[in-house]
């Protein structure tokens, strides 16, 4: 645990000049955000699905934290990022509206 700071410093280098403190706070909020969204979506649906997804979430945390780097990479001002998400969300919105879910 001694070199946790160095580890994070290495990871957050990709963010370009962001302080480690801000990166860590954002990371913790994201870690709280995903399970809360899972609970909100799955509460009352099915216990088994909820448990499986919770386990998957823990695996995801172990293997892919810190999320902050990935989130910030997906939210740049690049045109293609915007186009990708717009296309995906347009599809999902139409799917849900027409009663797909």
């Amino acid at each position: 645990m001694d070199n946790l700071y160095d580890y994070l410093h290495e990871k957050f280098k990709a963010l370009g000049g962001t302080q480690i403190g801000s990166g860590l706070s954002a990371e913790f909020i994201l870690l709280a955000f995903f399970p809360l969204v899972l609970i909100a979506l799955l509460r009352g649906v099915n216990d088994t699905i909820a448990i499986v997804l919770a386990l998957l979430f823990i695996v995801a945390v172990v293997f892919s934290a810190p999320f902050v780097v990935k989130v910030s990479k997906e939210n740049t001002d690049h045109y293609n990022i915007a186009a990708f998400y717009v296309a995906i969300v347009m599809g999902i919105v139409m799917f849900i509206m027409l009663g797909g879910i």
Partner: peptide, 12 residues
């Protein structure tokens, strides 16, 4: 809400 505030924290 969440992504906006996370991104706000990361700006320089």
């Amino acid at each position: 809400l969440i992504i906006g505030s996370v991104m706000a924290l990361l700006q320089t």
